[in-house]
Design a protein around this nucleic acid. Sequence first.
DNA 1: TGCTTGGAAACTTGATACAA
DNA 2: TTGTATCAAGTTTCCAAGCA
Length: 420
Amino acid sequence: MNTSPMPNSGGPSLTPFEEAIVQTDDRITPSDASATGYEDATAPSFAPRHSRRRALQEAKVDAQRFRTRNGQASQAGRSPSLTHPIVLRDLPAHADARPSQTQLTKLHRSLTQRDLVILQSLYDYRYLNTLQLQELFFPSLRSCQIRLHQLKTLGLIYVWKVIETPGVRRRHSMCLISARGARVIADWHGDDQRAYVERSHEARDHCWHAVHDLEANQFFVSLVSRSREIRRQGLQIWSGEEQVREERRERAREIKQRIPTPDGRGIYRANGGRIFFDLDWDRATESLQRMRQKIASYVAYFKQYRDADKHHVLFVVPNDDREDSLQYETWRGRPDYSLDTCCSFWTTTSDRLRRWGPLGTIWLKVENRVEKPPPIGITRVGQRVAFKQLPPMDDTDRSTADCIGKPFWWERRPGGGQVA
DNA sequence: TGCTTGGAAACTTGATACAA
DNA sequence: TTGTATCAAGTTTCCAAGCA
């Protein structure tokens, strides 16, 4: 089965990801980094507060960067996908204990801004593994592990071991916020603690979809990781499923119809514009009928928006066959001809995503305004585009330095990734 | 052997205390 | 006020443990 994306005609043999960044020559070079105030792009690019250490790797010329697995660990999305994971839940009692006001004050004093944003991210996105947290916040996996261990010791997060069958193969541990951590976040914001604790209990007790959530979150982490060294590009907003559901629930009441709830929503800044997108991570566990309903709800919801075609709904599916089926079903669910506002649907496969990353030339548009259905095998013959080629909503010159994953981003974004 | 975690040692750097 | 010593925190590399 050919799962490679269709190359552009006759060009040099660049990967879709390389094409995506070479076209603009926008990579941040070390000289640019010092000139623009970016951290040295090759040295540890982020660290808590202002990193005190920087010279060791430069001093040791032959030093090999530590890797916990073969291959390019820094390329998010290339970690092995989980097939039969078993989560070993560990529930220390003190993680659920209610801290006194004195203890809360003490905790706040001992936590850095980065720690708070880590807690906020775990609250917002439910589950992140150690590798994903490292991509978002730490210069190395080891320093990430040490800090997470400290947060675990303080009872602010759970760190659950993940093993995979057949046999037993250790995978990166899964982290989620504890009730105690949720109270710290609520106290930080000056909010009532009950809703925060409730959500933390929800994540702790109902983790059947943890793998799905980790995979969906990996998409955003990959976006962050891939865009980190590209000037004028970055993930400005990453909203978790809960946040989107909350936002759209009110709208659903207003318009009295079902509202689609994606696995995440984002705003990506590229080429001076903002690309609005919803992510729907499909593991082929839902029937095609259910997918049809979902597509119909997207069409109905976005038709009320001006520039609806610039709201992009991205489906990531497990294989080519599923992508073929989804292309057809989405075309079948096309809006009425009298309706000239409809969101744009795009599909790709998880294999392409792993191989080329989200910025690669992997996105296949669903042509749902044409009369003829997509041909069988569209997944292999369709012309794909890069992420940054998705039509943006508007133009703006605002800097991308505050985007998620940029150096010290958590210091400029105390509310985490959901708040610009 | 491969993979991940975590302990230990070495190193850097900012903050602080203290003497001159 | 300045120079020095010490401490604490953060980071990296090396390596062992544990597992099949």
